[in-house]
Design a protein around this nucleic acid. Structure first.
Lengths: 118, 118
DNA sequence: CTTTCATATGTTCAACTGTTCATATGATAA
DNA sequence: TTATCATATGAACAGTTGAACATATGAAAG
């Protein structure tokens, strides 16, 4: 197997280690999806929105008021969270209430907080 | 308390909901640190590196070969992961071996994978 | 010392991202 | 119908980011 990796100019490669580890890597598609998921948690505004929704459902306007941001900015972020199925919504007249759609949101954020606590 | 949130033009705000939720939000600094942590997991290259290190310690060159990327790109990313204390290293002559420095890395990624599996 | 080579780093640049602004949609009330 | 208002959306713009390239560092060998 001539995997000399054209991009790696190094001459010393630990072939046995490389071969042992190569099979452990999930598919590019899976890893890309995983990175995309974590990207959602990688923005302060989105983290704040999710944190607020831990407590109870909130409308766009309430979230904007709580975070002291424009309704537009919040709406854009909710759109992202909605597309990623982290958040769901229900309409009540003119008002749209958003809430958490996924149980993993809490545990992922909890794990992150645990790391910070060290 | 005149928290009418200058940036929110909406007139309807659910004051009781807002007041109830406001205290649930951690400090801006904590939330910023949390977002920064998740940002690290929000890149395919870094996710791949961490995944590889799940198996065993690897040198820069091995990682570059496995991911078919330049040594420079990998080294830059390892620098980021090192600064964030997710990865540690040990030197052996000219070669630097990297390994996971944090037990939470596994569980955070595992949680993400669980979410995808649904 | 000098050479070799694995790794680190500084710079540049293209691609991406989050916010703002302006505007559109859509539901309710008059 | 028209007016109001909560929300959604499109475009533009600034700030950020990851990779490539060139170069520097530093350890071992000669």
């Amino acid at each position: 197997m001539s995997k000399t990796a054209t991009n790696c100019e190094c001459l010393l490669i630990h072939k046995d280690a490389v071969n042992e580890v190569r099979s452990a890597l999930p598919s590019d598609e899976t890893l890309s999806d995983l990175a995309d998921l974590f990207k959602l948690f990688g923005d302060t505004t989105r983290i704040k929105i999710l944190y607020l929704l831990f407590e109870k459902e909130l409308c766009v306007c309430d979230i904007a008021a709580l975070l002291n941001m424009t309704q537009s900015a919040i709406s854009h972020q909710l759109k992202t969270l909605k597309h990623s199925k982290l958040v769901k919504f229900r309409r009540e007249g003119k008002v749209v209430f958003y809430s958490l759609a996924d149980t993993h949101v809490r545990s992922i954020i909890a794990q992150g907080m645990e790391h910070l606590a060290e």
